[in-house]
Design a binder for these strands. Structure first.
Length: 547
RNA sequence: GAGCCCAUAGCUCAGUUGGCAGAGCAGUAGACUUUUAAUCUAUUGGUCGGGAGUUCGAGUCUCCCUGGGCUCACCA
């Protein structure tokens, strides 16, 4: 790092601020290319560059550097693309060229000049002026192999984004996907809204929360696990079609499908049912697949997924039956449908005695509906087709405390979950708008909490009050944006569609020089000794964030 | 939280049975006015993630710790 810093100091000594901000580009790299494309074809021989042409001012990072003594080729990267710049001592002038030679790979420069085409046919800017705008103190990763180490890529995404072009492309595409979703909903009369992320009452999903605290109000708060209950309050208030795209926080383990903060689209439409939303989902996601996939098919991690409509549906019960069959367990639909028969089957088949998640889940299940839920998660999900999106339907009411009961079967709810490539992508249902039933469901959740279910919802009294003012018949849905982007960008882990996926703190990492840490600790000790005994002891974080 | 795997120069990677820590790129110095991983010459750069142990001797073997990856658990 030192030689680069020396160059920066040398520049200062020569009266040139290595971090100046007085250069205003007139064009991006792409705009130069577009402007030149409209001009007569450049001289392919390159013998007589079009010095009479227009001048362009372009700024960017030097991502390639090839020096030849009295002339240098660099490639500048800006937010659009990369453009070659040719700097010659006889064009720039002796002094300016000498200054430019203080620049090196990954420095940011601004150049002014005219466009021409080299003899190898590459559009190039002939620099007539050049200023160094930002001196880089750290060297870039190796130019051919790039940056591969996953940990460094995630921790230092700013480097990853420059050096691995495919990474930046994923995030650009993510942005376009979200734009398309917004446009789709806006066009159908949905209003984008924002609701609180700090919640006093836990609800809207089944998850363990992050807890925080409001100092001035001396109030414990949760980071929201879902915006659902607030969005439905808005429907009560007359916003019949609303949506929110925002962060949810769930205090869970990390995996290739889970990040503790993740982005969810939730939308609600009055006078609609979950069937309406199934149609909408096929239409919305089908459109995204048309744009980002290959017609009606999408290739994900080598698996072709056929999105031609209608997408297949599978009931929870059917999935469980297939899962049992695949596991070599004899189970029929009649047994599954009857509470006592299913309980007996779980015992006699030995499932309830197992020490794995299936056995534990069955023993913890409070009733038939929860038992079905456990069996679906542990047996059913594994048999869902991989080559088609699948709507799983006919969920038990016991595991869906905010969903409307089916008119024909009060133990079921009008709900679907969309699975693609084995992952849950969306969850939608006709909303429960009967306040009396809702209060009963909250009471059941409270019982679950008392029985030790940390993920059960709290009783939201104000939400019940809102329902008592009348929630029109409504359907709502949540779509996991990160997982959707994974599909549409063919990325295997959620970390690859998040700029900064959650990692353990680096300070505890051996890569931070122990000398630096002990140095800081010593400073902190000295400071503590010089302070009054009554002062608050410095914690590790204070020490590390010092400087 | 559990099991398995990984950690060597700024980056990408070698490192044999336990026997003098290496290469390429980057950097530095020099040559070079149309290159495309430019080329040529010379050269700097290491707490082998951290700690302990075994050994005459540890990058290499053992244990503990830290971080990462995969699988599982959690995610109804």
């Amino acid at each position: 790092m030192v030689p680069r810093q020396q160059k920066a100091e040398e520049l200062r000594a020569l009266g040139h601020n290595p971090y100046r901000n007085d250069f205003r580009p007139t064009h991006t790299t792409r705009e130069v290319r577009e402007a030149v494309g409209a001009l007569p074809p450049a001289d392919a021989e390159g013998a007589a560059p079009a010095a009479a042409g227009p001048r362009f001012r372009v700024a960017g990072r030097i991502v390639e550097y090839r020096g030849f003594g009295k002339a240098t080729f660099v490639k500048l990267a800006d937010r659009h693309e990369r453009l070659q710049v040719y700097l010659r001592r006889d064009v720039l002038g002796e002094a300016a060229y000498a200054l430019f030679k203080k620049a090196e790979s990954w420095d940011v420069i601004g150049v002014e000049g005219y466009a021409f085409v080299t003899k190898t046919g590459e559009l190039t800017l002939m620099a007539e002026q050049c200023v160094l705008l930002t001196k880089t103190l750290r060297p870039p990763p190796e130019k051919w192999s790039g940056l591969k180490d996953h940990e460094t890529r995630y921790r230092q995404r700013y480097v990853d984004l420059v050096v691995n072009p495919g990474v930046a492309e994923v995030f650009r595409r993510r942005s376009r996907i979200v734009q398309r979703i917004r446009a789709y909903l806006d066009q159908r009369g949905f209003l984008e809204v924002e609701t609180p992320m700090l919640h006093g009452t836990l609800g809207g999903a089944a998850a363990r929360p992050f807890r925080t605290h409001h100092n001035a109000l001396d109030l414990p708060l949760y980071l929201r696990i879902a915006p659902e209950l607030y969005l439905k309050r808005l429907v009560v208030g007359g916003f019949e079609r609303v949506y929110e795209i925002g962060r949810n926080f769930r205090n869970e383990g990390l995996s290739r499908n889970h990040n503790p903060e993740f982005t969810m689209l939730e939308f609600y439409q009055a006078y609609a049912t979950y069937e309406t939303l199934i149609e909408l989902t096929e239409d919305l996601l089908g459109g995204l697949v048309r744009e980002f996939g290959d017609g009606t098919t999408l290739s994900y991690q080598g698996q072709a997924i056929d999105f031609s409509r209608p997408w297949p549906r599978l009931s929870v019960a059917e999935a469980v039956l297939r899962g049992a069959q695949r596991s070599g367990l004899a189970l029929d639909a009649a047994q599954l449908a009857d509470e006592q028969a299913l309980l007996a089957w779980c015992e006699s088949s030995g499932l309830s005695q197992r020490s794995d998640a299936l056995g534990q889940g069955l023993r913890a299940a409070a009733g038939h509906g929860q038992r079905l839920g456990v069996l679906f998660d542990q047996l059913g999900e594994a048999v869902l087709p991989q080559d088609r999106p699948v709507f799983v339907v006919d969920y038990p009411a016991a595991t869906s405390p905010l969903a409307r009961r089916n008119d024909a079967d009060a133990e079921r709810v009008d709900r679907f979950e969309l699975f693609i490539a084995g992952r849950e992508i969306a969850n939608g249902f006709s909303e429960l708008n009967d306040p009396v039933d809702q209060r009963e469901r909250f009471r059941q959740q409270l019982e679950g909490r008392r029985a030790g279910d940390e993920e059960a919802m709290e009783y939201d009294e104000d939400y019940c009050r809102a329902l008592e003012y009348g929630l029109p018949p409504t359907a709502g849905e949540g779509i996991g944006i990160d997982r959707l982007v994974m599909l549409l960008c063919d990325q295997p882990t959620i970390r690859d569609v998040l700029f900064f996926p959650h990692l353990r703190p680096e300070a505890a990492l051996g890569r931070v020089s122990p000398r630096a840490v002990s140095e800081r600790a010593a400073q902190s000790r000295r400071r503590l000794q010089s302070e009054r005994p009554s002062s608050r002891p410095a914690r590790l974080l204070d020490v590390l964030s010092d400087e």
